[in-house]
Amino acid sequence: MYALNYVKARSLEEAARMLASHPEAKVLAGGMTLVPTLKQRLARPSHLVDILQLAELRGIAAKGGRLSIGAASRHDDVATSVVVKKAIPALAELAGLIGDPQVRNMGTIGGSLANNDPAADYPAAVLGLGATVFTNRREIAADEFFQGLFATALEEGEIITRVVFAVPKRAAYAKFHHPASGYAMAGVFIALTRDGVRVAVTGAGPGVFRWKAAESALSKSLEPSALEGAALDASELNQDIHASRDYRANLVRVMAKRALAKLSGKK
């Protein structure tokens, strides 16, 4: 790791000020991606601005059909939260599938979203549920937030403060995880929201995406067979040593069916 200066922010405002005055500074939350990245010398920030302890980024609450999760909530906090389990059980389940227990004890929802790893789990839930990402400057709709491989709508120095989910009628997540890394080879989140069916896919493409063909198929029928005809262009999916494009396309369909089965209470 290159030498750097660590600063523990005492308030969100102080963190924003630090980021503004040091253009090469980076936000540190749980550090589950950032610290390994630094160790490999793939990044060279001048400062790390630690926001993990900030009270402004804490707390999980459900009220009036909405679930609000503070950006510094650890995956384990979300996985075990009684409030989350009651409001959106699929979200608690998803959080419990991230990485491994040690990672879940440190990694945060805000960090995961800001990083937008193409195989991360949270982006699938946030996009699938059509959540809203709140920052220290504005609100960003999930449909605008994710912009492909490690890219988001966040501007320089912008910090995620919380994520607000509209509680869906039902939702389910199915993930085929890579056995070594725990990341999704394909993960599909299906939500029956007030505005219709949403299907978000992670792990398979260069970034989380909505599978629109599946959404329209499922809006007519929630039978697994409805997914058979839903078009999915494999040429746009990832290909690597772990899986070919066609294999991933098939996995997406299988995960979607599994999520659907969970949704219908069949599994």
């Binding site: 660590y6 550090g31 610290v35 630690d50 040690q102 004890n105």
Partner: peptide, 20 residues
């Protein structure tokens, strides 16, 4: 793996200053 404030974490993925 060690416990920081009662939670099991990987100490190779955390800075000592984070545990101050």
């Amino acid at each position: 793996t060690v416990h920081v404030n009662g939670r099991a974490v990987k100490s190779c993925s955390m800075l000592a200053v984070q545990a101050n």
